[in-house]
């Protein structure tokens, strides 16, 4: 274990100072009251896969790695839809997932928002409509494009979504 701490100290903090980090600081000032009112200082996200290829999930997992460490922005992923403000939806919405996704959505307390992640829920990406695909008919508030969107673009997307509350 000592070896690990030696390495840990040598490595230091690697979390990136991305350009948009400063952007967040500015937005924070402007929308602090609104975040406080709507999200109690933290935005809880429940991610649901409705039939993706798993790349969007991998990129969402990457958001927790030391480079991005999303939690420091006050945005975190929760286990239950009942604890969530936002449903983050990936995938094409298959016939077999349709009712489960709606179940998750209905379990969320209002006010609630839906963000679609990646091209699949938006326009099926490269896929085409088949009998086994239903498509998304949830009330979508925001869309983060990409196939899959990389972690940086997902964070930017979250910020854009938050900006919407300024209006």
């Amino acid at each position: 274990m000592l070896r690990f701490w030696k390495k840990r100290i040598k490595t230091g903090v690697i979390t990136e100072n991305l350009e948009f980090d400063r952007g967040l600081e500015e937005i924070k000032k402007e929308i602090k009251d609104k975040i406080k009112r709507y999200f109690a200082g933290s935005l809880a996200i429940r991610m649901v896969d409705s039939g993706s290829c798993n790349a969007c999930e991998a990129e969402c997992n990457a958001l927790s790695n030391p480079y991005y460490d999303l939690q420091r922005l006050g945005i975190h992923f929760v286990a239950s839809p009942r604890h969530a403000d936002v449903l983050l939806l990936s995938g094409v919405m298959t016939f077999n997932m349709y009712h489960h996704v709606w179940d998750a959505y209905n379990q969320m307390p209002s006010p609630k928002w839906v963000i679609t992640l990646g091209d699949c829920p938006y326009n099926l990406s490269v896929f085409e409509k088949t009998y086994a695909i239903k498509g998304v008919d949830l009330p979508v508030d925001f869309h983060i494009p990409g196939c899959p969107p990389n972690p940086e673009n997902i964070i930017k997307g979250f910020l854009e979504f938050l900006k919407g509350f300024e209006k």
Partner: peptide, 11 residues
């Protein structure tokens, strides 16, 4: 399984 069944073979 088969919750993610997209019907790719037919697609």
């Amino acid at each position: 399984h088969f919750y993610k069944y997209r019907g790719l073979e037919k697609m």
